[in-house]
């Protein structure tokens, strides 16, 4: 290790924290490469950002409108994903029904197909002439494309798998005997789910919700295809970034940074809250 020989070497080892130890370099090296790969593009954005007029640019009404739309739709989408995704995860994890494996495979479809294709698929189903959309239009006068609802639906479509997979994993890992204990105390299935199962898998639900929210926030392809691009109603931050890229790359960098910082701030706050809870 050094000139003073083995005694000082072993002394150094003695000082090191027991248990955690020093991670081996075959792990550290790829980890560092991984971090660099994830962080360098960020550095690129920061370096190229037009810092002097940053303040003016980020307070432009269009930017604020897009930011607000992004945050609100991503949040609504996450709530919808929770409302529909948690029960779905429960069914997949806890019940046997014909075609369950098939349904589980279907849940991952939005992860596999390009979001733009997902957007087209949504149009074909919920569009004005879509399989379902035509009846919504004919019976209720409801057209979904080009509305904020369409933005939400596009986000739910692409983000739901993250929640379902995360929650299903948590449910499979949960100790079912607690549910039995609750049943012997007189709890019906709904009570067991709400008061025992759900609190047990809450970390999984939280992780799923965060992934879901982050995915919804960054959603572009399905949104622009299904919801279109109109400032204030359907132009979320990723769409604004893409549009800015066509004419004013610096503006695109500004918007990207804003989206990035706001989402990091939200995620850090949530994490802080949960860790302290």
């Amino acid at each position: 290790m050094n000139r003073s020989g083995s005694r000082s070497g072993s002394a150094t080892h003695g000082v090191m924290r027991v248990g955690s130890g020093r991670p081996p370099w075959p792990l550290i090296l790829p980890a560092l490469v991984g971090v660099a790969f994830l962080v360098l593009p960020l550095v690129g954005l920061v370096v190229r950002a037009p810092w002097p007029d940053m303040g003016r640019r980020i307070t432009e009404p269009e930017v604020l409108a897009a930011l607000w739309l992004s945050l609100s739709t991503a949040t609504v989408s996450t709530v919808l994903c929770l409302v529909f995704g948690v029960p779905l995860a429960w069914l997949l994890a806890r019940t046997e029904f014909p075609g369950r494996r098939f349904v589980r495979a279907l849940v991952t479809v939005p992860l596999v197909i390009p979001p733009v294709v997902g957007g087209v698929a949504l149009l074909l189903v919920l569009g004005r002439n879509g399989l379902v959309g035509r009846y919504l239009d004919a019976w209720f006068g409801l057209t979904i494309p080009f509305t904020s609802l369409a933005v939400v639906l596009a986000q739910v479509f692409v983000a739901m798998p993250f929640l379902v997979i995360s929650v299903e994993g948590a449910l499979r890992g949960a100790d079912r005997r607690y549910e039995e204990a609750a049943a012997t105390l007189g709890a019906g299935r709904v009570t067991v789910f709400a008061r025992v199962t759900l609190p047990m898998v809450l970390p999984g639900v939280g992780a799923g919700a965060i992934l879901c929210w982050a995915r919804a926030l960054g959603e572009f392809g399905a949104t622009i295809t299904f919801a279109g691009n109109f400032p204030g109603t359907t132009q979320t931050m990723p769409l604004a970034v893409y549009m800015a890229l066509q004419s004013d790359p610096e503006a695109a960098i500004v918007l990207s940074l804003v989206l990035l910082l706001v989402s990091l701030a939200v995620l850090a706050t949530l994490r802080e809250k949960w860790v302290n809870a």
Partner: peptide, 19 residues
Amino acid sequence: PVERRPIGMVFQDYLLFQH
């Protein structure tokens, strides 16, 4: 059904609800 039986049960690891 189990939830309507007039029983009380103490489980092996007690299974107290941790939350």
